[in-house]
Nucleic acid binder design. Sequence first.
DNA 1: CACTATACTATATTTTTGGTAACTGGCTTA
DNA 2: TAAGCCAGTTACCAAAAATATAGTATAGTG
Lengths: 109, 109
Amino acid sequence: MPTNPNEQSKNPDLRLINKALAMICGKWRLYIILLLGEQTLRYTQLSELLPGISEKVLAGELKALVALGVMKRKAYAEMPPRVEYKLSKKGRLALPILNQLQEVGQLFN
Amino acid sequence: MPTNPNEQSKNPDLRLINKALAMICGKWRLYIILLLGEQTLRYTQLSELLPGISEKVLAGELKALVALGVMKRKAYAEMPPRVEYKLSKKGRLALPILNQLQEVGQLFN
DNA sequence: CACTATACTATATTTTTGGTAACTGGCTTA
DNA sequence: TAAGCCAGTTACCAAAAATATAGTATAGTG
């Protein structure tokens, strides 16, 4: 009988968990994703929907989420500038699971 | 026609989201919860399963998770001491959703 | 020419998180 | 008598995250 390190349940995969945490952890990140849900929002609209976020943090979070592939940035060559953010395909795939986190929050309310 | 601030989708609830984030954010927190899954683990077992975690951080995370109501601590009046940790009922209810986060991680792999 | 609008960037500062290493208490074993 | 075991605690420090505030580029408007 071979040694079985995982008795009854398969161990969680730390790498996958870290990938997921990278997307949602931080004071604003998950909220930005959920806000974006089905709609497209501009930088200024997002800053209005995130009460108290600083310009620097918002710009940084948007950049990070685009880099992670969760959302897409579309800039129009207009003046004054216009930039729109929306979820990527992967982001939309993850959305139902991320929305369920609100139910988890409700459990511990 | 009355003004409808939420067009097509109900806005996410920042309070619930923060409750959920409090449980899972941090370098080790979610992993501890998933590890505990169905099994009961002792302090030393946990520290062995979390390679590189410091005593201080582990003790702090366990204390926080117990305070949040995710897990329970049971101490036996023996010598040497024995303390067991396992998920609370609420923790077990949240578990399926938290496990799905690994699928989210897989999407962005 | 001054002024506005938008989407940022830069700089400095504060707060939070994570980490190291040493120490404790009470019993047991060598 | 000393050393080990378990489940932590304590004091201290570094790095990361968040915040506050000011500045930039460009074009159009009056």
